[in-house]
Design a protein around this nucleic acid. Structure first.
Lengths: 219, 219
DNA sequence: ACCGGGTTTGAGGATCCCTTGAGGAAGCAC
DNA sequence: GTGCTTCCTCAAGGGATCCTCAAACCCGGT
C-alpha cells in the first residue's frame, strides 16, 4: 500500500508525506512531473497524489500520461476555487480531487474511498473494536448491536482512533486531525469530547488514556 | 452452485460452512492450500472462499495458482487492518475480499455480488430503502407501493443518496452532483429540496441529516 | 403575455453541540 | 504521605447549523 506524492512545494510536500506515513501509508515524495512519471513506472504505487500546479509541466499532462501507462488511482490536488482545473483533471483521468488547504481527515477519507472504488468496492469501511462497530461511510456507530448517536466531533474523534486501531494517538495529533489545529491549548476541549464519547459508549473501556501522551483504542 | 471454503481454523471454518449451507450454498471445507488446489481441479466449485492466512503455504500463492488454472471467482478472507494483504490479494487474482470478523449478511452479499459479476448478470438499477423503491433508470420512485411524483432536483438528490446507499454524502458533494456547483453558498437551496423531498416521502425518515457534514439514507 | 410548476432566496426561529471554566480526582515522583 | 502534574466531571452560555414558511424568481408551454 504505497503512496506516490507529487508536490513541488517542499514544505507542504513534507507535511503531507509525514501525515500519510503516520497514518500507515508508506509514501514517496517527488517534486516534478518528470520524476512522477518515472516513479510510477518504477515503484508501482497504489495511489498517486498529484498536485496540479507543478513547475516543469502542467498537471493535466502528467495526469494523462500516468493514465496512459497505468491504472493506478489518481487523486488530484488543486487550489481553492480552481473549478476549471478540477473538471479538466477529472476528464484527464483523475479519480477524485482535493482542494487546498487539505485537512488530514479529508485526505485519509478520500484515499480510502479511492482505493475502495479502484479495487472494486472492497476496502472495509467499518472498524470493529470489541462489540463496537464504527461505520466510516455511514458515520454510524453501534455498540452491542444498538445504534449510538454521536455528534460530529465525537465521531471524528472515534474514527481517528479507529483508523489506527490500537495505536496511541498523541493529543496534538488528535487535535490536528479532528479540530485542524496545531494548538495544544484546546486540551480541555479534547478531554470533554473524550468524556462524552466514553459515556455514550457505556461501561466498555474502549477509549483508553495514555497518560502524558494521548489516547488509544482497546482491541 | 457449490462453494469451496479454504480455512485452517476448524472452529471458524465449520461455522462458516454451516452458515453457507443454511443459506443454500452446498459447501466443501478444506484446511490447507494444497487440498484447496486439488479440490478446485476436482470439484469445480462456483466460488472459492480463501483464507489468506494458511499454515502450509501463503494465501497469495494459492490465490495465484488457482487463478492460473481456473477462472472461478475467489473471495479472499483477511485479518482486520491487514491492508497490504488485501491489495496484494486483489492483484493476485482475488475478486473481492472479506475482513474478519465476517458477518453473515456481508458474506452472503459478497458472494451474490461476485457471482453476479462472474456470470455477467445485469446489476439491478433500483435501490430499495425500507418501502421506498428508487428506479434509477426510469427516474421513478414508489413508496409503500404508491408512485410518487418528484421533480428533477428532488429525484437527482434522492438518486445521489441512493447510489451510495447509506453512506453520508457531504453537502458540498451533493451540491456538486446535483447542481454542478462547488459553491457552498447555495446551502439553503439544498435544504429546501431536502425538505420538499421529505414531505413527499411522508413520515418515513428516509433522508437523515448528519449535522455538520451532510445527508444520508436510512437502510 | 400569461399562467403554473419548479426552483431559489431570505428571514426568523428552534435545536443542537462545541467550547470554556472551575473544581476535584487520579496518577506519578520523591 | 506530600506535592505536582495530568486528566476528568459537570454545567451553562453562546454560536453554528439546520428547518420552516413565504415570497420572489425563472422558464416552458399555451
Amino acid at each position: 500500500m504505497r503512496v506516490l506524492l507529487v508536490e513541488d512545494d517542499p514544505i507542504l510536500g513534507d507535511a503531507l508525506r509525514r501525515t500519510l506515513v503516520r497514518n500507515g501509508f508508506p509514501t514517496e515524495l517527488v517534486g516534478s512531473g518528470t520524476a512522477a512519471l518515472a516513479a510510477v513506472a518504477e515503484r508501482e504505487p497504489d495511489v498517486v497524489l498529484l498536485d496540479m500546479g507543478l513547475p516543469d509541466r502542467d498537471g493535466l499532462g502528467v495526469c494523462r500520461e500516468i493514465r496512459e501507462r497505468s491504472r493506478v488511482p489518481i487523486l488530484a490536488i488543486t487550489g481553492r476555487g480552481d473549478v476549471a482545473a478540477r473538471v479538466q483533471g477529472l476528464r484527464s483521468g483523475a479519480d477524485d480531487y482535493l482542494v487546498k488547504p487539505i485537512s488530514t481527515e479529508e485526505l485519509l477519507a478520500r484515499i480510502d474511498a479511492v482505493l475502495r472504488r479502484a479495487t472494486g468496492a472492497a476496502v472495509a469501511a467499518t472498524v470493529t473494536v470489541g462489540d463496537v462497530i464504527v461505520d466510516l461511510d455511514r458515520r454510524a456507530v453501534t455498540a452491542g448491536g444498538a445504534e449510538i448517536a454521536l455528534t460530529r466531533k465525537e465521531f471524528d474523534l472515534l474514527a481517528a482512533l479507529a483508523r489506527r486501531e490500537g495505536a496511541v494517538l498523541p493529543r496534538t495529533e488528535l487535535l490536528e486531525q479532528v479540530w485542524g489545529i496545531a494548538d495544544a491549548s484546546a486540551a480541555r476541549t479534547l478531554e470533554a469530547h473524550v468524556a462524552s464519547l466514553r459515556s455514550k459508549l457505556g461501561e466498555r473501556d474502549v477509549v483508553l488514556t495514555v497518560r502524558g501522551v494521548g489516547y488509544r483504542l482497546a482491541r
